[in-house]
Structure formats: C-alpha cells, structure tokens
Amino acid sequence: MFPGVNGFHWSPVHIIFLSAFGLVLSVLLVTLAVAFFRTLRDVRSGRAGAIAWHCDFEDLPRQERLCRHAFEGAAPGRLCDRGFDCRDCETHPKFATIETRWPVTLPAGLEYPETRLYHRGHTWVEPQPDGTALIGLDDLGARVFGAPEVVELPAPGTKLSVNGAAWRMMRNGASVSVRSPLEGEVIAHGAPGGQWQLRVKPEAGERAFRHLLSGAEAHAWVNAETDRLMILLSSTPTGAALADGGALVADLHQALPDAPWDEVSAAMFLNC
C-alpha cells in the first residue's frame, strides 16, 4: 500500500488506490480539523453563547418556539425561525402593524409594569436615563423559581449576547441558566435578593430593544406562559390543585415541593 512497504509498486492501480484512500482520509481529517478550529475561533471571539443558543433553539419543543405575534393573534400558530431575535427580522415590522385580535387581561396577581420591557426567557429590562439598563427576573419567573440558594452572576466587564447565558441560579437540585435579554457589557451587580440582578451597558442604537416585548403584547405572552406553566404542572401528581383559576402563590417551589422543578424551571427559562 505504502511506498517502501513490501508489495508496493508504482503501478497505476496502486497509485489510484493510494490516492483515493489518502483523499478520503484527508477529507475526513480536514473536516474534523476545520470544525475544531472554527470552534476555537467562535469560543475566542465570544460567539459561543449565540451559537449554543442557536442549537438550543432548534431543540426547543414546538410550543416554546412560537412567534411573539402568535400570542396576541396577529399570526396564530406561527413558529419563529430566527431564535427569538427580532432585531433583524423582516416580518416582525409587518406583523407589528396588525391589530391584535384577542382581548388581553393579565392573569390575576401578576405584575408586569409598562415601564419595563420583557424577554421570552422571563427577564425584564428597564432602560435607565444614564444609558444603562437594569435586568431582573420577571414576576412569573420569580414565582416559579422562588428564592434561589445560589446565584452565579457574571463578573463586571463580561460581554453578554442576546439569548446567551446571563447568570445561573440553583435551588433544591434545580438549576437554570437565565438567558440574557440584551447585548452589552455588565457594569454592576444588584443587591442579593433585590429587584434587579445586573446593570448592563447595552449596545448602541434603537435596535438594541426591538426584540423585547412590552405593553399588551407582553401581557398576551404572559397569559400564554401561565397556561403553559399550568399544563407543565398539571401532568404532575399534585398538579390538579393548581388548576382552579386562582392567583399564583409567591413561591411555587415551596407550595409544590414534589413537582419536578428541574424540568419545569428548564422549560420556563428556555433551557434545553
């Protein structure tokens, strides 16, 4: 087979054989090497979070990939194909002009102030007059997860990307990675147990907030999310107790200790 090995001759058959074998093997190795070096490049240039989200998004269940305009009736049942990043979406502006079809009321007891913008991973963003923005867990998110035992916040100076990992929190064996609502640089941490978790300097320009929900649209989405939470919990042995249409308790974790919180939190915070 190889020059120098007993039985090899520089005959056409051997040359064709050797080159075909070498070609295939080198294509295979080059493919692996290219993938490896591109991975290194992506990780170094900070694109890892965005790419990981891309893969996660593909694997999300169908009902978690609905377009934002599906909730208020502008585009019923439409699936998002851009990883919840409406900043460059061509159809988002068109749908935004369509009148909502369904009346929206916020579920009882939940607070979603109009001053805040909301992200599909249950975080809110509050732009500040100084050009920074505060980030925290929204009301439903806070009720689902309750008081975390451990919170791992990114160090100031860390660059966040939209839908990338913002911070981790753990409680009672359940562990979630909270998705970042903004692209920007972490400036400061909030007080432990306080309203906001991160102060971020967002990317410049108007498009920085275009993908976030607000007002009636946010309320429609929260409605759908509450329903989804009910369905998630209803299939548990204790779930039936919840489906009474009443107000959500402040700490669901405590109220339903036997529910599969790892699963439910992962689903609510768009973890795979």
Partner: peptide, 21 residues
C-alpha cells in the same frame, strides 16, 4: 454534554460541514 458550551459550538460547526461527509 450540551452544558459544555464548546461542545455545542463544535456540533454546530461540524453540522455545517456534514454535506462534505
């Protein structure tokens, strides 16, 4: 496995090259 972000990135990059394979 996907908790390690670089695994997912490798998967993504490799997947783009799958037609070659």
């Amino acid at each position: 496995f996907r908790k390690i972000p670089s695994f997912l990135v490798f998967e993504w990059e490799l997947h783009k090259l799958i037609p070659v394979l």
